[in-house]
Simulated scan of single mutants.
Amino acid sequence: MTRRIRLVLAASVASVLATLGVVVVLLHDGASAAESSCARTQAASVARASIVTGHGPRTLVIGDSWAAGFGLWNIGRSFPSYLPGRVHVAAFSGSGFSEGATHCRHESYADRAPEALRGGASLVVVEGGLNDTDQPPADVVSGFHRLMSVLHGHRVVVIGPTAAPKRGDSVYPVDALLARLCAAARVPYMSTLGIELPYQGDRLHPTADGAGIFGEAVAHWIQTQA
């Protein structure tokens, strides 16, 4: 083998190794970024859980960023604060009924419900669906059944996704699916597609006024289910 060929081969090998190194670094950086994102979301979840509003029997809200108060100056005024009872919130932004709604592990509604129920609840309000719009329907069904199994024996109501502009028409199949699942499980279901709300700049989350409108609408509907 000539010296020139050896140099070319060495350069090629070095190039391949360098490329692999870049890929490994990118994968590591991506994983680190995802972990950091999940840690921040978890911290926000804990912060919202520490805020208890209202008086009376314990109401537990299991939900997503709408319950967590994402983007609101005062997260304690997210929509659950308008609900009846002494309201506790178990919310994780990006989560949903399906396991894959969020890239953060073990944060689906069914995953979080056992811990959230430790304090008991006279009413469990499950809110969501906006993060399930890109998930396989079978995963939503599976997640719903898992959740209902955990909540068995409790009074449960389900609040469906709004027609958030960013989600477009993708919310309608999820709303219809949740309505069918709740009917089969004999769980009251509130479709919120007809509620007009002001949204933040991301066209996905309600403004403070929107959270109030949504919360009051849900509270009124819950009272009709008593």
Results as ranks from 00 to 15, higher is better:
Ala47Asp: 15
Ala39Ser: 14
Leu60Pro: 12
Pro80Lys: 10
Ser45His: 04
Ala67Tyr: 02
Arg48Trp: 03
Pro80Val: 06
Ser50Gly: 05
Tyr82Trp: 08
Asp64Ala: 10
Ser36Gln: 10
Val46Gln: 15
Ala33His: 00
Arg40Gln: 14
Tyr82Ser: 15
Phe70Ser: 09
Ala33Glu: 11
Ala44Val: 01
Gly71Met: 12
Ala34Pro: 00
Ala67Gly: 15
Gly69Phe: 08
Ala39Leu: 05
Thr59Ile: 07
Arg58Phe: 08
Ala67Ile: 01
Ile75Gly: 14
Ser36Asn: 09
Tyr82Pro: 04
Thr41Ser: 12
Ser32Gly: 01
Gly63Val: 10
Ala49Leu: 09
Thr59Lys: 09
Ala43Thr: 10
Val52Asn: 04
Trp66Gly: 11
Leu60Trp: 03
Gly63Cys: 11
Ser78Lys: 11
Pro80Ile: 11
Trp66Cys: 04
Gly54Met: 05
Pro57Lys: 12
Ile75Arg: 15
Val61Thr: 14
Arg48Thr: 03
Ser36Trp: 02
Ile75His: 11
Arg40Trp: 00
Gly76His: 03
Ser37Thr: 10
Ala34Tyr: 00
Ala67Glu: 05
Thr59Gly: 00
Ala47Glu: 14
Phe70Met: 08
Thr41Leu: 09
Ala67Val: 12
Arg48Ala: 00
Gly76Arg: 04
Ala49Phe: 04
Arg77His: 13
Ser50Glu: 13
Pro80Glu: 12
Phe70Leu: 14
Ser45Arg: 04
Cys38Asp: 00
Gly54Phe: 07
Thr59Phe: 04
Trp73His: 14
Ala68Gln: 15
Val52Arg: 06
Ser81Arg: 03
Gly56Trp: 08
Asp64Leu: 02
Gly56Asn: 13
Trp73Met: 11
Arg58Lys: 11
Pro84Met: 04
Thr41His: 04
Thr59Gln: 05
Trp73Glu: 13
Trp66Tyr: 15
Leu60Met: 07
Ser37Met: 06
Arg58Ser: 04
Ser37Asn: 10
Ile62Arg: 06
Gln42Ile: 00
Ile51Asp: 04
Gly69Pro: 11
Pro80Tyr: 09
Arg40Pro: 02
Arg77Glu: 12
Cys38Met: 07
Leu72Glu: 04
Arg58His: 08
Gly76Asp: 05
Leu83Thr: 01
Arg77Cys: 08
Phe79Cys: 09
Asn74Asp: 14
Gly69Val: 07
Ile51Leu: 15
Ser78Gly: 07
Gly63Thr: 13
Gly54Val: 03
Ser36Leu: 06
Gly56Glu: 10
Gly69Tyr: 03
Gly76Met: 03
Pro80Phe: 12
Leu60Gly: 08
Ala34Glu: 13
Ser45Leu: 03
Leu72Met: 08
His55Ile: 07
